[in-house]
Every structure is written in C-alpha cells, then in structure tokens.
C-alpha cells in the first residue's frame, strides 16, 4: 500500500509555517554574516601590509615606500572608511554576491574563485558523503539485525578500524599504494595538467579518475561513523514493541527490516546527513590539500595563509548559506518523514 513518506494527503503544510521558517533562514544568514564581518577585524594584522611584506621578503617590492602603497590599497578596498560604513557596504555587496576581488590573486573577483572551486568540491565531497551515508547506514543496520549472514559481521572490524584512522592519513596511504606503487590513479590534482575544464566526455572521465582516491579516503573514513550510529539506533528500535508486534503479525522479514526497524532508525540519521551536507561546501580541507584538489578546501587553506579577507568572507558566507539551507530543507522535509513532528508551535 501507500507509504506515508510519499502519501502526503491529510498532511498539509501551513503556508504561515513556511513563511516563518524561510524568514528565520534569512535572519540566521544575516546574523552569521555580521559576526563573520566583525571577527576578522578584531584579529591583528593588516592584509595589505602582510601581502606587501611577503613581496618584500621575496624581493618583489618596488621603489614606492610601503606605507603609501598600503594607504592607496586601503582606499581601493574601502578599508579606510569608518567601521559602520564598511559594514553597510559589506551587507550591500553580500546581497549582490559581490565579495570584491581576491587580495592574494588580485584582481580576480572572489565570486570567480568560488564558482571555480565549488563544483569540484561539491562533486567530490557531496558524492562521497552520500555514498558513505548509504553504505554505512545499511551496513550498520545489517550489523544489528539478527538474520544478517555471518560474512557481513566479518567485514565489520576492518571497516571500523579504518574509521579510526584520520582521513588525511588514509589519503596518504591510498595515494602511496594505488597512485605511486601501482600507478592506477593520478597522484593528485583535479584534472590532467594543460586541459581546460569543460563538459566534454574526455574531461569528465579524467576528472572522475582524479577524484577516485580522494573520494575513497573520505568514504572509508566516514563509513564507520554512519555504521556505528545506525547500529546503535537499530538496536534500540528492535527492542520496541512495534517490531515485536510486526513479527507477531507474520510480516515478511524484509518488510519488518525496512518498514518497521530501518525506517524508524533512519530518522536521526537523516538529521545528521542534512547537517553534514550543509558542511560539504567547506570542502574536505585536508584531503583536498593532500591530493592537491582544486576545491574549496584548498582555496580556504591558501586564503587563510595569505590573509585573503575577501575570499575567506566568500567561503564563510557560502558555508553559512549552505548550512542554513540544509536546516531549512530539513525542517520542511522532516515532518513528512516523522509525523510526530508538528509544524506549528502550540
């Protein structure tokens, strides 16, 4: 028969709730953006002086006195204005997704650096997260199921051990074995040097080949987390009276497993998945760096190194929006998955 997850009749979503929830999303984004604006300004160090001093150190400085250059650039970036004016400029720019230009990679617009790195990260980290979630959850559920064949239990210890290894270390090991020793996969990067990103078949296949090892290290490292959490939930759910009654009803074991046990054990997993997906845009910094992957993680790392305020803003804002969106979608979807969750406050 109909499953309740898809059968939405009788569960109407009050428009008032949706409006309030979307409004909350914008408030969260605004508040987070404001904090995001203030915090770096409390930190010591001037981005422009920092950049120039680096150039001096590497012998790239010109004849102009440094202070004059600093002042010129501060005017160029609007850093000489009073703080409140900087704040309003910042908000106005943010609304238009104009994060200015990168200081470290002057004069590339921040938006361009973000939109270049984002697809790389999303395709790698989101795919890896979803694969790890599906396999891990199913595996965890099977571990807690009495009818599960023995060989599944045999796979558990190595997988759970793998989960205890930090994923950058796992990344290095995989790289050494499969890229360096066997040469099955490229050593790093997102695509072959000298090729331009495009939507051609050859490029996509090449990019996929480059992402296998980083994805594998992410999957192997996070699989255990999903599996353990799911196993715990399944054990709890199996003690519930409705699972006992389901068996007394003479239901097929597969129906009891999926519709009664797994279906209920999944609910906390879904919440965790939504939040994890929200974090996807921050990239997997360490894995990306280990593999020299051109994603957001690498970009973030370089920007922090270079005091590249605008890029850091851009990335942080992206993360805020992504997490805000993830929780928004979660709040709108969860009542359909768990009817006990009410839309409105009573």
């Amino acid at each position: 028969m109909r499953t309740n997850g898809r059968n939405l009749q009788g569960l109407e979503m009050p428009i008032e709730y949706v409006v309030r929830r979307v409004g909350l999303f914008f408030v969260i984004v605004w508040a987070a953006a404001t904090v995001n604006f203030l915090i770096p300004r409390l930190a010591p160090g001037n981005p422009i002086r920092e950049q120039l001093l680096q150039q001096v150190a590497t012998g790239g400085a010109g004849a102009t006195p440094i202070e004059e250059v600093v002042q010129a650039y501060e005017a160029r970036f609007g850093l000489d204005l009073p703080l409140w004016l900087q704040y309003f400029n910042f908000l106005w720019d943010t609304v238009r997704f104009d994060f200015g230009v990168s200081i470290a990679r002057f004069p590339t617009p921040v938006w361009d650096t973000l939109t270049y790195a984002l697809p790389w990260t999303i395709s790698l980290v989101a795919t890896a997260t979803i694969i790890a979630f599906v396999i891990g959850s199913l595996f965890g559920a099977l571990l807690a199921w009495p009818r599960t064949p023995r060989f599944v239990h045999a796979v558990a210890p190595p997988l759970l051990t793998m989960a205890a290894v930090p994923y950058y270390l796992l990344g290095l090991i995989l790289m050494y074995v499969f890229a360096f020793r066997f040469g099955w996969f490229p050593l790093g990067g997102g695509h072959q040097l000298g090729t331009e990103p495009s939507f051609t078949m050859t490029f996509m296949l090449d990019a996929a080949r480059h992402s296998v090892l980083p994805a594998l290290s992410l999957i192997l490292a996070t699989l255990g987390f999903w599996a353990l959490q799911m196993r715990g939930m399944m054990v709890t759910v199996q003690g519930e009276d409705y699972v006992t009654l389901a068996e007394a009803k003479g239901l097929r074991p597969s129906r009891i497993f999926f519709r009664y046990a797994l279906r209920n054990a999944m609910l906390p997993q879904i919440t965790a998945l939504a939040l994890t997906l929200g974090h996807v845009v921050s990239g997997a910094v360490l894995v990306e760096i280990v593999y020299g992957y051109p994603g957001i993680g690498t970009l973030l790392f370089r920007s922090v190194q270079n005091f590249d305020y605008p890029v850091i803003y851009g990335i942080t804002f992206l993360i805020i929006v992504a997490i805000g969106l993830a929780t928004l979608i979660l709040d709108l979807v969860l009542p359909f998955l768990d009817p006990r969750i009410k839309y409105s406050r009573e």
Binding site: M1, R2, T3, N4, G5, N7, E240, D241, Y242, T244, L245, A246, A248, K249, G250, L251, R252, R255, R259, Y260, R263, N264, L267, L337, D338, P339, R340
Partner: peptide
C-alpha cells in the same frame, strides 16, 4: 497476539490503515 505495552505497539511513522493492510498483504 494482542501485545503488552499499548503505547508503543504501533509503528509511529505509518498510518493505522497501512499497519492493518500490510499484514494481509504479507
């Protein structure tokens, strides 16, 4: 069987109708 624990004997995420019908189906 009419089970012990009336509060928890039904699957919280399924409508009553579906919990009656799935038994027939199986």
């Amino acid at each position: 069987m009419v089970a012990q624990g009336a509060m928890n004997s039904l699957n919280p995420v399924m409508r009553i109708r579906d919990q009656i019908i799935d038994a027939w189906t199986d």
